[in-house]
């Protein structure tokens, strides 16, 4: 009776932590894990407590499924939000993930900045542009204080398409880099267990 309660509590907790996964997939996962637990208890003679301990906490097990789903979806997506979420998750897996995450932040911030300044040019034309003085770049983007003459804006209304193109390219390039990193991150996804590689099992 206690063992049954233990199994059901574990399964119930696992199900609740599988939240973002579709109901069909969730029930499939839960059914499979329940079958594994019953098989392990029946075939190996281990107690239910031992089997559950070896399986790991339900929230950690669920996190492995959720991570796999997030990274799989993001690696096929162009949504910056989804890609950023996946790169943040990747950052928790190691140094290379942290590098990808910060590259993503910088890339999207720069790209987004260019796009926003293109729109800002429409509303604050005098405060947005590319200013040079004596052939040297003084300032660019949207400025609260416009550089004083002899500095002058050389872009004019060409700033809008130029900033949109550069910003969009930066966002696309950042997305491409993150997707590439996520696709080669299967090694990181495999960073789930095996740490007991020298322990006998069974």
């Amino acid at each position: 009776m206690i063992q049954t309660m233990g199994l059901e509590t574990y399964i119930s907790s696992l199900r609740s932590h599988l939240g973002p996964i579709t109901i069909g997939d969730r029930e499939e996962i839960v059914r499979e894990i329940a079958a594994y637990i019953r098989d392990s208890v029946e075939q190996s003679g281990l107690s239910l407590k031992s089997v559950l301990e070896r399986l790991g906490p339900p929230d950690e097990l669920a996190a492995q499924y959720r991570d796999g789903l997030l990274i799989r979806r993001a690696s096929r997506s162009i949504s910056p939000l989804l890609l950023l979420r996946a790169s943040l998750r990747l950052a928790t897996k190691g140094l290379s993930g942290i590098v990808v995450f910060f590259a993503a932040i910088i890339g999207y911030a720069m790209g987004g900045g260019f796009v926003l300044s293109a729109f800002a040019k429409c509303f604050f034309p005098a405060h947005t542009g590319v200013w040079i003085r004596d052939g040297e770049l003084i300032s660019s983007g949207t400025q609260f204080e416009v550089p004083s003459p002899p500095a002058h804006d050389i872009a004019g209304w060409w700033y809008v398409p130029a900033a949109l193109v550069i910003g969009s390219l930066l966002i696309l390039l950042t997305s491409f880099v993150i997707r590439k990193a996520l696709r080669v991150s299967h090694m990181l996804q495999a960073k789930l267990g095996l740490l007991r590689s020298t322990e006998p099992v069974g």
Binding site: I29, Y36, L61, Q189, G193, R196
Partner: peptide, 19 residues
């Protein structure tokens, strides 16, 4: 001699099936 933590293989099988 690949001795797995038990919770390891199922998420991997799930991913391989999804792929």
């Amino acid at each position: 001699q690949l001795i797995l933590a038990e919770g390891t293989i199922y998420p991997i099988l799930h991913r391989l099936r999804a792929e």
